[in-house]
Simulated assay, not measured.
Amino acid sequence: MSETVYVDNNREAAGEVTFGFKGALAGARQAWPLAVGGCADGLVFGVLAHQSHQSLLEVFLMSALVYAGSAQLLVLHLWSLPPVFWPIVLTTLLVNLRMVLMGMTLSPWWRRLPPLKAYGTLFFLSDETWALTMGEFARERRDAAFLLGSGLLMFVGWIGSTLLGCWLGGGIADPAAWGLDFAFTAVFLTLLLGMWKGKADILPWLVSAVVAVVAARLIPGNWYILLGALCGSVVGAMRHAD
């Protein structure tokens, strides 16, 4: 991959952005500790996916095409045979709406790239790769391939660990004996702690929790997940708009 320089002095963020092998390699080097940590979540997802009667092929396709750990774990909780289509799609959309904001922060540079490089690289966008890339750009090292390198490493690690977890899950006859019946709750508590930004998060989280609990008691099925996420998101958006 030869380095290419893209310049657009008419843009608000003037300067240049490059796309080359050195940037991709730098991204992979910085991302490997995060990729190792992500593999732990991938193993848990794989085991739980097997317990939800998903095959290795289904786990592979979900991890490769969706590539969103929190959304995939939520989908497992909604999974049924046959799967209920709309709740799964809408829940995944709500959980991943933050990617729109992440993409907007990258747009001053990414819109200078050819479409194949820009959109192909953004497929590997995640919370971790976005944070690493923004830190790199803040230090004036603006190689867009940094996101590609870090994202590819985490992508491969995620797929590999989910498949390994699914394979290992076949040898676990009683998930409760290993504490895996609590794994879903534990993973999401960890995700929540990582998302905590301060007291401003209390109201949206509280609304989401109350709506989910009430809906779980009054509405059959798994609609409480979607309703809780939707109400919490609306309250959060209203607070930011004020």
Rank of each mutant, 00 (worst) to 15 (best):
S2T: 06
E3A: 09
E3Y: 02
E3G: 03
T4V: 14
T4D: 10
T4C: 07
Y6F: 15
Y6N: 03
N10M: 04
E12P: 02
A14F: 03
E16G: 08
E16K: 10
E16I: 01
F19M: 08
F19V: 08
F19E: 13
F21C: 14
F21S: 15
G23E: 11
G23M: 09
G23N: 11
A24T: 11
A26H: 12
A28I: 08
A28V: 05
P33H: 13
L34E: 04
V36R: 00
V36C: 03
G38E: 06
G38D: 06
G38P: 05
C39F: 13
D41P: 02
G42W: 09
L43I: 07
V47K: 06
V47D: 10
L48C: 06
H50S: 08
H50A: 07
Q51D: 09
Q54Y: 06
L56H: 08
L57P: 07
L61M: 15
M62H: 11
V66K: 01
A68H: 05
L73N: 13
H77G: 09
W79V: 02
L81C: 02
P83N: 14
P87C: 12
V89E: 10
V95N: 05
N96I: 09
L97M: 14
L97C: 09
R98P: 07
M99L: 14
L101G: 08
L101A: 13
M104Y: 10
T105V: 05
T105K: 11
L106A: 03
P108K: 00
P108G: 00
R111L: 04
L113F: 07
P115K: 13
P115T: 15
T121P: 02
L122S: 02
F123R: 05
F123E: 10
L125V: 00
D127C: 01
E128V: 01
T133C: 00
M134Q: 14
G135D: 12
G135E: 11
E136Y: 02
A138Y: 05
A138G: 12
R139Y: 08
R139W: 05
E140M: 04
R142E: 09
A144F: 04
A144L: 05
L147Y: 11
L148N: 11
S150P: 02
S150A: 13
S150V: 01
L152T: 12
L152F: 15
L153G: 09
M154G: 13
V156A: 15
V156R: 04
V156C: 14
S161A: 13
T162F: 06
T162E: 07
L163H: 01
W167Y: 07
G169I: 12
P175V: 06
G179P: 04
L180W: 09
D181I: 03
A183E: 01
F184Y: 09
V187N: 01
L189Y: 03
L191P: 06
L192Y: 02
L193P: 01
M195A: 14
W196R: 08
G198S: 00
A200Y: 00
L206N: 10
L206Y: 14
S208R: 01
A209T: 10
V210G: 03
V211N: 06
L218W: 06
I219M: 11
P220T: 02
P220M: 00
Y224E: 10
G228A: 02
G236H: 01
R239N: 04
H240I: 02
